[in-house]
Amino acid sequence: MNKKAGILGTGSYLPKKIIDNFHFEKLMDTSDEWIKTRTGISERRVVDENETTSYLSTKAALEAMKCANLNPQEVDLIIVATATPDMIFPSTACLVQENIGAINAAAFDISVACSGFIYAMTIAKQFVENNTYKNILVIGAETLSKVLDYEDRTTAILFGDGAGAVVIGEVNEGGILSTHLGSDGKGKDFLSIPAGGSKLPASKETVENKLHTIQMSGNDVYKFAVRIMGEASLKALELANLDANSIDYLIPHQANIRIIEASAKRLKLSMDKVYVNLDKYGNMSAASVPVALDEAFKQGKINKGDNIVLVGFGGGLTWGASVINWSIQGGKYE
């Protein structure tokens, strides 16, 4: 029999510091009402100067392992999806490996921006199903506050920090039914951090021109996202031999409430079947989907046997969607 890969446990971690919209009224020409109306965001979490992406990742990973009743020595592989690693190398995943004492685990990062968690989960699925690894930690984590220009109204108000994690392993029933991934490099300039790599190494000029911060063409990203979120979800459902009527719950990337509402409309879902925490956390890039997934599970919105759709989009441009038949009972949290 072919192995089935599924989620064995979930976890998340959010920094304690909260920045609300009124904070930005002091920095730029904006208002709480304008931000809420345009984005749906009321506040976001931000790390302090001592908190790193690996720190957030470690906290989320430990919670996911607890939920899955997994010891560190039983972890075979750690994949961290992040656009804000602690450093270029070593990988953030290796730092997590040391922090949690996963002495038997391989570790690597992937950089797919906001689609990263679904990409990483897809990789983990293959490793479990082909019997390469048994227990895989998949983490989406970001400290985006460290790469923002707080004078840029188009980006500063949108992003927050956080981490979410899952343990992927073999399940007897249900599991990850399908995944669909895609990319379009023609949109590479719509959402990027231009400097810091081999094309534009750090220099006096790149720092002065703020090229180490997030640059975004908001209208282009919005038009792309409204189209691709629904399309990707439908493709993943098709691969799972299901249709939109089979969806019990949708967990979308938390970028903009209007994008989320458009996705739900495309799938003919009422908003009570869609998880939204955008108002509390803003866009956490690769962390958005796993944090929302963990919260939805903790709150009892996801139950064993439910068909869950995860969907996201991000810089690259990239996108990904997955259909999961939920395999674990709630009540695992103290």
Rank of each mutant, 00 (worst) to 15 (best):
P252Q: 00
H253M: 00
H253C: 03
H253S: 00
Q254G: 06
Q254S: 06
Q254T: 00
Q254W: 02
A255L: 06
N256E: 04
R258K: 14
A262D: 02
A262Q: 08
S263K: 03
K265I: 01
R266T: 14
R266Y: 12
R266V: 09
L267F: 04
L267I: 02
K268T: 11
K268N: 15
K268M: 11
L269A: 09
L269G: 02
L269Q: 14
S270R: 14
S270E: 15
M271R: 13
M271C: 10
M271T: 14
D272R: 07
D272P: 12
D272C: 11
D272A: 10
V274M: 10
V274G: 11
V274D: 12
Y275Q: 05
V276W: 00
N277C: 14
L278Q: 04
L278W: 06
L278Y: 08
D279L: 07
D279I: 02
D279H: 15
K280Y: 08
K280E: 15
Y281G: 06
Y281D: 01
G282E: 10
G282S: 14
G282C: 14
G282Q: 14
G282R: 13
N283I: 03
N283Q: 07
N283L: 04
N283S: 13
M284T: 15
S285D: 03
S285R: 04
S285T: 15
S285I: 12
A286M: 11
A286F: 09
A287L: 07
S288H: 13
S288A: 13
S288L: 09
S288G: 08
V289I: 14
V289T: 12
P290D: 13
V291H: 08
V291T: 11
V291R: 04
A292N: 08
A292W: 01
L293N: 07
L293H: 08
D294R: 08
E295D: 14
E295M: 11
A296F: 03
A296T: 08
A296H: 04
A296D: 10
F297Q: 05
F297S: 03
F297D: 07
K298W: 05
K298P: 03
K298F: 05
G300T: 06
G300V: 02
